[in-house]
Amino acid sequence: MAKLTFHLTSIKDDDFFKKCKGIFSLYRGDTYHEFVDNRYQAFVKLDSRVNDGLINESDDILFLEIGINYSDSGIEEKISACMVGAEQKLRKSLDGEVCQIIYSKVSNHITIVTDAYGLLPLYYYKSSDEVIISTDLKGVLGIKPELRSSINRQSVSEYLTLHSIMNNHTLFDNVFLIPEGTIIQFSLDDLATWNEKEWYSLPKSYEERSLEDWYRIVYRELTKAVKKRERPGIGTLLSGGMDSRTILAVISPDIRSTMKALTFGVDGSDDLRLAGRVAKRFGVKWNPIILNHDDALKDALKHMWLSDGASNHMVSSILRAVEQFGVDSLFDGTPGDAN
């Protein structure tokens, strides 16, 4: 039987793993790194919907959910959606920054499901007789130290030039990111049964929609996403571009009137000039933050390691600004929010 090891930074107790009677092992090394753990603690502080390991057990099934799930589906409904893999059911039961893991005691079978946009990262290493699953890249490296010597130079190049790593590759060879909207199923008795498939896709009917329909869809979905996240004390990144100014326009006026907008840019840049005009137009308190190229490069190299290459290198500067300006969390114009 294959060995399966989990390293989950957000799980603070071992109940789930104790119930597995030795089938799983839980790694507790020193690889908890400040960026991920602080980010998770910020979620716990700001949002009561964070699951610090939602655990449910029946005679056959162990179910674990990690992250923020806005779905009102019950446990049984979530388990059914994962096991069946039906897209419509998963759309309803997986709504947020969340992943779910199911272990069938009878069949010795594992099911892992990621949310539609991959907002909660899951990394894995797989050989012929071992699987490692981790919510951060360093968890895999802590369990399998020999992987540290095999740096993926292409991924490093992509991160420094494009600010992200393409496909499901990581900074290290043989360690991969489980893609967004994915179901992985396999038996611990035979890892050759490993099956990975997408559960989330755009409906074919979308291709037939008119431009006016798309305006309505984008406005509806954007408004819904912003309303779920806005709260007193939240701020926003404001580049002056279309993404950030559109989010600012959707935020409720009462929230907007008390919020702070942060803009990062080189002195004299268009970003600073345009963002200042937008902030004045919407009546938000504007806080420009001047960057220089040397500091930006140092931040990029540091953040590439801290964030596992999974987020824009500007986040290091953003986190410092959040503390400096007393903002609880930020809208940042990407699928996830910087906290």
Rank of each mutant, 00 (worst) to 15 (best):
K260V: 01
W214T: 10
I165F: 06
S150R: 11
I151R: 12
S134P: 08
S252V: 02
R245I: 05
K224Y: 12
Y206D: 15
S257F: 00
G241N: 07
E158A: 09
R209P: 01
K228D: 03
Y219F: 15
R231W: 02
V175D: 06
I217C: 08
L177G: 03
P203T: 05
H163L: 04
I165P: 00
G139K: 01
S257I: 02
I151Y: 03
T135G: 13
I133S: 01
A261Y: 02
S187A: 15
R231C: 09
V250Y: 02
S252E: 10
Q154M: 11
A225T: 13
T223P: 04
N174I: 01
F176W: 12
A225L: 06
S164H: 13
K227P: 00
L237H: 08
S164K: 10
L248K: 01
E208P: 05
K260Q: 04
Y206F: 15
S157M: 03
G181W: 07
P145G: 06
R256I: 03
L222R: 12
S187M: 14
M242S: 12
M242W: 06
L171W: 01
E230T: 03
L237K: 00
E180S: 12
F176P: 05
L141I: 11
T161D: 04
L211D: 14
P145I: 01
T161C: 11
Y200S: 13
S201W: 14
G233F: 00
D129W: 03
T135A: 09
L137E: 02
L160K: 11
S210K: 05
E230Q: 09
H163A: 04
E196C: 15
L211I: 15
E196V: 14
I165K: 04
F186P: 03
T246I: 06
F186Q: 08
W214C: 12
I247C: 04
N174C: 09
T161N: 13
F186R: 05
F176K: 11
I132E: 00
E207R: 13
R209I: 05
D190R: 10
S149V: 12
G139L: 01
Q154T: 14
Y215E: 12
Y219A: 10
V175E: 01
T182G: 09
M166D: 13
L160R: 06
K138M: 11
E158S: 11
D129N: 10
F172K: 05
S252C: 04
D254W: 02
V156Q: 02
S210W: 08
I132L: 15
V226L: 07
S155G: 10
E130K: 15
T223Y: 09
Q185N: 12
A192R: 13
N152M: 00
D213S: 07
L248M: 11
E207I: 03
G181M: 10
L222I: 06
T258G: 05
L222T: 09
T258Q: 05
L211G: 12
L238K: 07
L177M: 03
F172Y: 15
V131S: 00
N152V: 00
V175I: 15
